[in-house]
């Protein structure tokens, strides 16, 4: 039998709701299976741990050919660009997630952190966006370089999302 996975290191690089959740679900799922998990937020993914932004992430309704409207009809790009569409899609997705007991971003990250998952922010992005440690939620463990990310990922499967 193949070796079971002992540790995962998940990179979250997108800041849309649909860009952030897959990584969070995988990190939480890993902890639930007794697998060690570290989550590394980089580029726009940082929005998911920035205190003032993390409660307001939205669904991208433009540039996604798989985007569908309620009822299953494809959403044309021009329709997705209408003001309010992203907000509506976000509202719909949050409602569906709540039904499945998927927590809001802040609560989810706290849960992963309390479960022993480690939360890191990418130093290059922090510098690029002129951020500091004070901008982040309390679940953040540390701002680290890519080199430190690899050190902390020793023995882990790295998953980029």
């Amino acid at each position: 039998m193949a070796e079971p996975i002992e540790k995962v290191s998940i990179v979250i690089s997108h800041g849309s709701l649909e860009g952030v959740y897959p990584g969070l679900i995988m990190a939480n799922g890993a902890r639930m299976e007794g697998i060690e998990a570290t989550v590394f937020f980089t580029f726009f993914g940082l929005d998911a741990i920035i205190d003032k932004r993390m409660d307001n992430l939205g669904v991208a309704t433009v540039g996604n050919p798989a985007m569908r409207m309620p009822g299953g009809i494809k959403m044309p790009t021009w329709l997705g660009a209408i003001p309010g569409m992203s907000r509506f899609a976000t509202y719909m997705m949050k409602k569906e997630m709540e039904k499945l007991d998927i927590p809001p971003v802040r609560e989810f990250i706290e849960m992963i952190h309390d479960a022993g998952g480690e939360i890191y922010a990418c130093k290059a992005t922090v510098d690029m966006f002129h951020l500091s440690e004070n901008d982040f939620c309390s679940s953040l463990d540390e701002i680290i370089t890519v080199g430190e990310f690899y050190e902390k990922s020793a023995g882990a499967k790295i998953i980029f999302t």
């Binding site: 902890r31 007794g34 007991d101 998927i102 927590p103 609560e107 849960m111 309390d114 479960a115 022993g116």
Partner: peptide, 21 residues
């Protein structure tokens, strides 16, 4: 796990220390 955390009266940290892995 979310429901467990919210409703069982035992929080996430304690859950993981009671039932490691």
């Amino acid at each position: 796990i979310r429901k467990l955390t919210k409703e069982s009266g035992v929080d996430t940290k304690e859950l993981y220390s009671l039932f490691p892995k």
